[in-house]
Design a binder for these strands. Structure first.
Length: 574
RNA sequence: GCGCCUGUAGCUCAGUUGGAUAGAGCAACGGUUUUCUAAACCGUGGGUCAGGAGUUCGAAUCUCUUCAGGCGCGCCA
């Protein structure tokens, strides 16, 4: 029905208005046809006449009269009303209305293959230096949800985790493990910039070494260290690297493997699976001229870089950045940006139409820089889209849960999952726009009470399952199709709500806003609970009952499909 | 100082490519169960959409400005 009505509106714009071409195309773009939010405004409603009056100075209500004549001639349209300043409200015949429901219940998405894209989403990408915490969980839930939504819209989606395994942070981890492994320091004198979490001890224990490796000159290693914490840790790393060149790679690689695996395990428990784990180290070394990172830097250096103060600078200001950026340091090492530059080149060269980077919002200052980098390499910056995810504040019984990464004392994602389950966690993570602060009360998420919106939604699904089972137990079989009965409208509001499903998914996908699904689920659950309380389905007249069961099947499917899009499993019973 | 984001009911937030009387959950108060799961439903109260100005048929939404809060501004990652 939507397609037919939409076509009719466009025909009306093209043929009946006599507008100039530019006005016509503007009007085509600006007018809306959408499901009415309440049935007294019809089933469908359009603002076409209002928009047209703004563009071409015509009287909207006069125009509406003309449009009404056109629309009323369409098969399935019962009548048309002109309301307010010039809205056109379209009322369908009950037959046509229910026909739409049959269409939606089968949930066959209409995919326009010409609009299909190859999309890559990179998310989480936490440094492999410790367990994922609750902040990472939000990025994981978000990235996975938009991946699911975009695939359901027909796009080809690839999920990728970028592992920063080449930088200083992993050296610090290796150093921390080394110090613990050989008990080089006590807790008191453990470097302040090292990783102090207890997981470091677990990793140290897990790494098995030959017996002859135990001769560590502990005092030698730890004496005369600089006072500055950063210099201290760097000095320690340098000493270990040069004095224990046999042990160092084993410890470092062992730690990296351990942490990476534990991150994978946590994500699996959270039901987030990546298609691709991309290791920064695979970009190669700057010292190797044939490495990807060297080639990428070389490409940029030819036209858009210069030397100053012994370093190589990218002329990023030419591409909209606030200042130029160092890509090769005075000492010849690359910066973080140089690796990211090569990584983005790699991604774009893989042939994606769009790459989406999901970043913590504290990286927003980095966006211009990376956009400039992409343009400097000769790509279109619009191929990349950055989605920022704000950190989540955890509350328990109204009090903020303290998190301190430095001391290694923090609430991990795994703890959260163990506490409230992956589904409730995902639900709450997605319950607000990603780029805004989220206050997440674990106390509420944990309770199985009416405060808990997650269970409110699940309960709707479970209740429908329950009614269906009761009905089947009585010997009935679920109807496969609506019967058109005059005068039966008890389910109309519920059906109208369910018909919104494809539009909600489309909007959630286009705007990369999975929270729209959460709010839709809430509305749907509310509509159902309302209906359920005022209607006794099992005692209804036979024909009415069949339609009610059909409508509930529709709602159940839509709830289940919506949940699937955010990675939540619908409960059959509670 | 510069840049980005935010300010909507007591609380947590939807609604922001301009649309019909500004919504939901929680909290408060009052009701609903011999009947399919009361983890539910119904009702009541609660708002100068931070303040001001502008744009137009029409603004929470767009523009300007003031105030308040958050974040970012490294040869860190």
């Amino acid at each position: 029905m939507f397609t037919q009505l939409s076509l009719a509106l466009n025909n009306f714009i093209d043929n009946d208005l006599g507008h100039a071409a530019d006005q016509t195309s503007l009007l085509r773009k600006k007018h809306k046809l959408h499901l009415a939010d309440s049935l007294d405004k019809g089933h469908w409603t359009t603002n076409l006449c209002l928009v047209a009056s703004g563009i071409a100075k015509v009287n909207p209500r006069e125009l509406a009269v003309k449009l009404a004549v056109v629309l009323e001639a369409i098969d399935g349209v019962d009548r048309v009303e002109i309301a307010g300043p010039g809205f056109v409200n379209i009322f369908l015949t009950q037959d046509a209305f229910l026909q739409q429901a049959e269409h939606t219940i089968n949930l066959a998405p209409e995919i326009n293959s010409s609009l299909q894209e190859k999309i890559q989403i990179e998310f989480v990408s936490a440094n492999p230096t410790g367990p994922l915490h609750v902040g990472h969980g939000r990025g994981a839930a978000y990235g996975d949800a938009i991946a699911r939504i975009l695939s359901s819209l027909g796009h080809q989606v690839e999920k990728e985790y970028y592992v920063n395994d080449a930088g200083r942070q992993v050296d610090i981890l290796g150093c921390s493990i080394f110090l613990r492994k050989f008990s080089c320091t006590d807790d008191e004198s453990f470097p302040a910039s090292g990783y102090q979490g207890s997981y470091v001890l677990e990793i140290a224990d897990s790494i098995k070494l030959d017996e002859n490796a135990q001769h560590i000159q502990k005092e030698e290693l730890c004496k005369n260290l600089p006072d500055d914490p950063e210099a201290e840790i760097d000095e320690l790393i340098a000493r270990i690297q040069s004095n224990y060149s046999d042990l160092w790679p084993i410890i470092r690689a062992g730690g990296l493997a351990y942490v990476t695996q534990s991150i994978k395990n946590d994500l699996t428990e959270f039901k987030v699976e990546f298609d691709q784990w991309f290791f920064e180290s695979s970009l190669g070394e700057l010292s190797n001229e044939m490495s990807d990172i060297s080639k990428a830097l070389h490409q940029v250096k030819q036209n858009h870089a210069y030397e100053k103060d012994g370093a190589v600078w990218l002329e990023s200001t030419k591409f909209g950045d606030d200042k130029d950026r160092v890509i090769i340091r005075e000492d010849g090492r690359g910066t973080y940006l140089s690796a990211d530059l090569a990584y983005h080149k790699n991604k774009l060269d893989r042939g994606f139409d769009t790459i989406i980077n999901v970043w913590g919002s504290d990286h927003h200052g980095y966006i211009k820089r990376i956009e400039a980098t992409i343009e400097a390499m000769g790509y279109n910056k619009n191929q990349m889209q950055v989605q920022l995810v704000q950190f989540a504040n955890l509350f328990e019984d109204g009090a903020k849960v303290k998190m301190s990464t430095r001391s290694g004392n923090f609430y991990t994602l795994k703890q959260l999952i163990d506490d409230i389950g992956p589904d409730a966690a995902r639900f709450y993570y997605l319950s607000k726009q990603a780029d805004q602060h989220l206050d997440f009360d674990i106390g509420i998420a944990r309770t199985h009470s009416k405060d808990n919106l997650y269970y409110y939604v699940q309960y709707a699904h479970a209740r429908i399952c329950s009614v269906q089972n009761k009905y089947l137990a009585l010997g009935g079989s679920l109807p496969k199709v609506f019967n058109s009965i005059d005068g039966f409208h008890a389910c109309d509001p519920l059906i109208q709500l369910a018909l919104n499903f494809p539009f909600v998914v489309k909007s959630a996908g286009e705007n990369l806003q999975p929270h729209l699904i959460i709010y839709y689920l809430r509305d749907l659950a509310q509509g159902f609970h309302h209906f359920y309380n005022e209607t006794n389905i099992l005692k209804a007249e036979e024909q009415d009952q069949a339609n009610m069961l059909r409508a509930l099947d529709l709602v159940k499917n839509v709830i289940a499909s919506s949940m699937e899009l955010i990675g939540i499993e619908p409960l059959q019973e509670m």
